[in-house]
């Protein structure tokens, strides 16, 4: 299995790279959103799947990226790619500002603090109308760039996954896991847990920041309620959890399955869609909290790289 995995992935990547030449506009935009979800779920996995510190406000980094890019493109006329990268940087700055105090909080208190962060950012963005357009939102100049955004989004998803691979197979990643397993013992074994958590947190903010910028560019319009919805955080968590948090491929798998399900099924039950989503969350939490890959890994004692 380990032998054909890289080959299979390579074929898949080539196919995805060639897709825009044949795909329809709708298809490309759908795939682009799938990439976005992979990047988001995987980024959440970096901090929460590995260290066990559950970030319930991860969409804040997405929103930060969206607004940074939106303002840079709309007001200062930056090229969109550069603006999106700046979005990633600003998300990291936000992670530093928030993580420095909040990563000292334990368990449910960290969750509450992160939950609040998102609310507060939305409020602040709505308030500074001069810069952000407030509740009226921010419109970006029209640009038809689905294909470049497709590649950019795909590249972010790929990079975050590659980063996860590198981390999980390194001692840095193992040390992050010791925090999840037993933080007191990790400290006693000489691991500076705070520093490690902070690094993981910073890394986990970059992807959502860039992706947020790309999504803003793609949609051409952002408003506080559309870039800071709690439901986005919940969705990325459920994707990572469903596929298997703390694994390399779990978030990818979870994102693909849940996104496909969403596209195929939910669209037909527009009124029930949230109810179904609630039911899915409850089912995943109660029946398979370890996720698909987590269960497989434990059952067959698979290496971490699968």
């Amino acid at each position: 299995m380990a032998r054909w995995l890289p080959a299979g992935l390579l074929v898949l990547l080539v196919l995805l790279a060639l897709y825009p030449m044949h795909g329809t506009g709708y298809g490309i935009r759908t795939m682009l959103q799938l990439f976005m979800w992979i990047a988001l779920a995987q980024s959440w996995n970096l901090i929460s799947g590995l260290t066990g510190y559950v970030s319930f406000g991860h969409v804040a980094f997405f929103g930060m990226g969206a607004y940074t890019a939106g303002i840079l493109i709309g007001t200062l006329g930056w090229p969109w790619l550069l603006a999106c990268l700046a979005g990633g940087v600003m998300a990291m700055v936000l992670a530093l500002v928030i993580g420095w105090p909040c990563l000292r909080l334990k368990g449910p208190y960290f969750a509450i603090a992160m939950l609040g962060l998102n609310e507060v950012l939305r409020v602040i963005v709505s308030y500074y109308e001069g810069l952000t357009g407030g509740g009226n939102g921010l419109s970006l100049p029209t640009l038809h760039a689905s294909v470049p955004i497709y590649y950019a989004m795909g590249l972010v998803a790929l990079s975050v996954t590659a980063l996860t691979y590198v981390i999980v197979t390194s001692r840095f990643g193992l040390r992050l896991m010791t925090i999840r397993e037993d933080e007191v013992a990790a400290e006693a074994m000489g691991i500076d847990t705070f520093r490690y958590k902070l690094y993981a947190f910073l890394l986990s903010a970059v992807g959502p920041g860039i992706v947020g910028g790309l999504a803003a560019r793609d949609q051409g319009y952002i408003e506080p309620t559309s870039v800071f919805p709690l439901i986005t955080t919940i969705t990325m968590i459920v994707m990572a959890l469903f596929g298997g948090k703390g694994t390399i491929w779990g978030p990818v798998l979870g994102a693909v399955l849940l996104f496909t399900f969403q596209e195929l099924v939910w669209a037909r039950f527009i009124y029930l869609h949230q109810l179904l989503f609630g039911a899915i969350i409850i089912t995943v939490v109660l029946l398979m909290p370890r996720g698909i890959l987590g269960v497989l890994q434990q059952k067959y004692n698979l290496p971490r790289t699968i």
């Binding site: 919940i234 459920v238 949230q274 109810l275 609630g278 039911a279 969350i281 409850i282 939490v285």
Partner: peptide, 11 residues
């Protein structure tokens, strides 16, 4: 937390 979110969304 996730379970209660599920309940919340459903309600």
């Amino acid at each position: 937390l996730l379970l209660m979110f599920g309940v919340s969304i459903a309600l």
